[in-house]
Design a protein around this nucleic acid. Structure first.
Lengths: 334, 334
DNA sequence: CTGAAAGCGCTTACAG
DNA sequence: CTGAAAGCGCTTACAG
């Protein structure tokens, strides 16, 4: 059942002009309430569907936002970002925008190829979800639609970014351990792998500083190689009473390692994670961790993006969204 | 740096008509190779970006496909479908289409509200990823763009569907157990919960029939209530030598249950799952399972959708995509 | 409060 | 091989 009712058809039906129909359907002023109501009823009766494409062409706005995720974050078992995307999609919808997901292939990232949806003017802006290469960022700086980084940031550019407050989250979590009597506290993570891991480390370190606990180099435990591949965890000769892990998956791995090495968690040592992902709940014991506030991040980044689409000069800088500690069973008071 | 170069601008620059520019840029015939090349170079030099919106309006095709996922499948730890979506997005891109994700809220599903992207003609078709209510399906049957079901099907309607061959996968897996000497084999799953669980059960049953093994009602173990919520598994008085589970998560739960009940896996009983999701690999031992061929399903459904957009009369019916057994450590030969 | 005119940037016949 | 004309379905000034 093909249906190509246009505003003109409604106008003909009612003996008015399509301008009036347009105004009525868009709730603009300049049409009497009575006529407006009549037009809306007729539109419904005739099975009219608004043509967003025509408006888009006229106002040169697609009402679509592209979301770029690097391919390497999208493996079947690494769905954090694809899960994140669903929130973006939903929030965009409340603004009457649509999201278009663009998986950036390794090849396109290396070859600095711009997304087709940009080259075809299908989107009004880009949200970059997760770290991409510096070179690619430089290319993106020169496009003529707004971009915002989500869940990462980059030093040498003035691009707006919405990120988790990794620093504060790890700081709070470490404070919590200390308030539970811990003073021998290790940090697990490769300090040079990502800005998240680094910032979480610094939050941990700030807490130590505030409590006059010296930083012990033996208590900084590497968890991955340069490519981000997890390595076997190396336990220090003297086991600390608590471990701050840079993410739940590593906390999960660490707990298993501790168990097979004869330690009980949390009786012998406490462990905390970060992210509140599935690894925090499948672990035995379940892990005390920081929940990233994905919803708030999605709300914020979309709101900013729409503002920037409307006014290209808006600037937000680095915006931090606080997480929330989820207390579970992996910490013991001593 | 605003940039609004149009075909007309290129035409003016070169002293030709925009029709010729359009033909050249779209690689249509009717332009000499020489002129075509010159036009392409000029377009690039001038920083021209094609305006897909203008074409869309002209040809009344948005070159977007909507993907509908019911909200209940999109919790933060239930990301199978959002992970699936990324494949759809990628395949659509190879056809120069874009995907627009539509999370169908419980409210919209109950209220039978059509997606905004449909009412605004922003999409040329819908892929429905995962079961939605019968009522909503009935509403969708009356819209004037093609729809295809993905990963589920529905009896009373003639809508095309691309689904995993659940029946055959469970059949093969059960055959594998029997070839390893098992004859006391249980099935774990609520037979009335979803068509997937039911079809997997029937595949299991067919294997038993072929091998003249009687179906034992004590060996059909319920795993969830009417709302799909997992319940505590009830082990039969006499423990079978093998369990066919309707999904990896249940296999994972079962293995833990067996362990705490004093049974060793696979020494005392073998366990197989379905899906090859994260639960198959975090389990100890890792679980032999069937991997759903997401890529092939994505390729197929997108190919069909594009065909249907072009020719509304195309029909495909129920198309089964075979999975693949992943052999791991949860089965013992006896 | 209502509407005639122009135009967004393409593509599609059709004519030469 | 090249191009003039018409039109996709809206919205935006502007005039009455």
């Amino acid at each position: 059942m093909k249906n190509n009712v246009t505003m003109q058809d409604i106008a003909n039906q009612l003996g008015v002009s399509k301008v009036t129909v347009s105004k009525a359907l868009n709730n603009k002023e300049g049409v009497s309430d009575q006529l407006k109501a009549k037009i809306k009823v007729t539109a419904k009766d005739m099975g009219y569907r608004y043509n967003a494409l025509a408006r888009a062409l006229k106002v040169s706005h697609s009402f679509n936002i592209g979301v770029i995720i690097a391919e390497r974050f999208t493996g079947d078992h690494k769905s954090f970002y694809t899960g994140f995307y669903q929130h973006l999609s939903r929030v965009l919808d409340t603004y009457e925008y649509s999201g278009i997901l663009n998986i950036l292939s390794d090849q396109a990232e290396k070859g600095l190829a711009l997304p087709r949806i940009y080259l075809e003017r299908k989107v009004d802006g880009f949200i970059i979800l997760g770290q991409i290469s510096k070179k690619y960022i430089e290319v993106l700086q020169n496009i003529d639609i707004p971009i915002i980084f989500l869940d990462f940031y980059d030093d040498h550019v003035g691009i707006d970014a919405v990120i988790t407050d990794n620093f504060y989250g790890a700081y709070e979590l470490t404070n919590y351990l200390i308030s539970n009597g811990h003073r021998e506290i290790a940090y697990v993570g490769n300090l040079h792998a990502t800005s998240s891991i680094q910032d979480r480390f610094l939050g941990y370190y700030k807490s130590l500083l505030e409590h006059q606990i010296p930083l012990n180099n033996d208590y900084i435990i590497n968890d991955r190689d340069e490519n981000g591949k997890f390595i076997d965890l190396f336990l220090p000769a003297q086991i600390p009473s608590a471990f701050v892990c840079n993410c739940d998956q590593i906390a999960y791995n660490l707990i298993n390692k501790l168990k097979t090495s004869g330690y009980k968690v949390p009786e012998d040592c406490s462990v905390v994670g970060f992210d509140n992902d599935i690894f925090a709940t499948i672990s035995e014991p379940q892990i005390t961790t920081v929940e990233v506030n994905i919803k708030e991040m999605a709300n914020t980044v979309v709101r900013y993006m729409i503002e920037k689409v409307t006014d290209g000069n808006k600037k937000y800088g680095r915006v931090l969204i606080k997480g929330k500690i989820i207390y579970r069973d992996s910490v013991k008071t001593i």
